[in-house]
C-alpha cells in the first residue's frame, strides 16, 4: 500500500544487531534470555501500538508512564484485596481507558494542544499517586498475581501471546477495517476528513481511549512479572514508547506509518540493553545509544526523502 522503506531499514538494523549478537554472544539467544527480553518488551509494544494510533491522528501522549503507574497500583491493590484476576485485568484496562478518555476529551472537545494537556496529566497523575501511596510498594500479593499463578514460563507465554494478539488485532483493524483507515484519514487531513463525513474529534478521542486501555493492559502484563508493584513503575515509559514508534517510521505529522515498523522499532530498542550486557559493554550506555538511534533513524529518513524529491 505504501512505501515500506522505513519498515525495511529498521528491520534490517534489527537483523544486523541480532547477527552481531549471534556471532559474538550466542548466549543472547538462549531460551531464558530471549524470553526475558521479549517479555520485558511486550508491555512496551502494547503501549506503542496505542501510541501509534495517537500519533497517526497527529497528537501525542506523554502521560502514558503515569497512567501506567496508576493502573499498575490499582491492579496490585485489587489483587491484594482478594479480587480474582478476571476482575483485576478489566479494572486496570478500564482505569486506563478512563484516564485516556480524560486526555482525549481535553484534546478533542476543548481543542487544547495534546502535548501540553498530557504534560499536565503526566505530572498530575504521577504526583497524585505519590501523594496517596507515599512511595509504598504494593506487597504481599496473592500467589495468583505473579505470572498469574502459572509459573514463570507459562506466565511469559501468556504475556507474549496477549501482546501478539493485541498487535495482530490492531494491524488488522488499522489495515482492513473502515474505522482504522479513518485514523489515517484524520491524521492526513483533518478538514478533508470532516468533509468526508468523518468526525475527527471522535476519532481523536477514540485513539486516546484505546491508548489508555492498552496502557491498562500493558500495566498488568508488566506487573505480573514481579512479586510486588513498584509505585515508580513506568517512569520514562513515554520516552521509550515514543522512541519506538518514531524509530519505526510513524510520522509525527500524522497519517503515515505502520505497526510493522513500530514492532521493529520497539524490538530494536529493547535489544540494546541486553545486547550491551552480552557484548560486555558498560550498561550505562543504553540510553545514550537509544538517543543516538532515534536521531540517526529520523535523520536517515529525512536525508533519504530529500534526495528522492
Amino acid at each position: 500500500m505504501k512505501r515500506f522503506g522505513r519498515e525495511l531499514s529498521v528491520t534490517a538494523s534489527l537483523l544486523v544487531l541480532l547477527a552481531v549478537l549471534a556471532v559474538t554472544a550466542p548466549a543472547f539467544f538462549g531460551k531464558q534470555q530471549l524470553l526475558a527480553t521479549l517479555t520485558a518488551a511486550a508491555p512496551v509494544l502494547v503501549v506503542a501500538c496505542g501510541m501509534t494510533l495517537v500519533i497517526l491522528v497527529r497528537q501525542i501522549d506523554i502521560s502514558v508512564g503515569s497512567q501506567f503507574a496508576v493502573c499498575s497500583i490499582i491492579a496490585g491493590l485489587m489483587a491484594r484485596a482478594g479480587y480474582p484476576m478476571v476482575l483485576v485485568v478489566p479494572a486496570s484496562i478500564a482505569t486506563g481507558a478512563l484516564l485516556g478518555a480524560f486526555n482525549g476529551w481535553l484534546v478533542a472537545a476543548l481543542g487544547l494542544p495534546s502535548i501540553v494537556v498530557t504534560l499536565a496529566t503526566f505530572v498530575s497523575w504521577r504526583e497524585t499517586l505519590r501523594w496517596v501511596r507515599e512511595g509504598e510498594f504494593v506487597k504481599d500479593l496473592p500467589d495468583r498475581f505473579q505470572w498469574l499463578g502459572m509459573g514463570q514460563s507459562a506466565g511469559q507465554g501468556v504475556i507474549l501471546a496477549v501482546a501478539a494478539l493485541v498487535f495482530a488485532l490492531l494491524v488488522y483493524g488499522l489495515g482492513w477495517i473502515a474505522l482504522g483507515r479513518r485514523v489515517y484519514a484524520v491524521g492526513s487531513d483533518r478538514e478533508a476528513a470532516r468533509l468526508a463525513g468523518i468526525r475527527p474529534g471522535r476519532v481523536t478521542w477514540g485513539a486516546f481511549v484505546v491508548l489508555g486501555a492498552l496502557v491498562g493492559l500493558a500495566a498488568v502484563l508488566n506487573a505480573i512479572r514481579f512479586a510486588d508493584v513498584d509505585p515508580k513503575t513506568g517512569t520514562g515509559l513515554e520516552m521509550q514508547v515514543i522512541a519506538g514508534v518514531v524509530v519505526g517510521g510513524v510520522a509525527v505529522s500524522g497519517g503515515r506509518g505502520t505497526l510493522w515498523g513500530v514492532l521493529a522499532g520497539v524490538l530494536l530498542l529493547a535489544c540494546i540493553s541486553p545486547a550491551l550486557v552480552f557484548l560486555k559493554l558498560p550498561p550505562q550506555w543504553e540510553k545514550a545509544i537509544q538517543g543516538g538511534i532515534i536521531l540517526v533513524a529520523v535523520a536517515a529518513d529525512r536525508g533519504g526523502r530529500s534526495r528522492l524529491s
Binding site: M1, R181, Y184, A185, G187, S188, E191, L195, A196, G255
Partner: peptide, 15 residues
C-alpha cells in the same frame, strides 16, 4: 479536500 497520505482509491473509498 483530499488526504495527501492516502492513495486515490482509498480517498474515494473513504468518501
Amino acid at each position: 479536500a483530499l488526504f495527501p497520505d492516502l492513495t486515490v482509491a482509498e480517498n474515494l473509498g473513504l468518501r
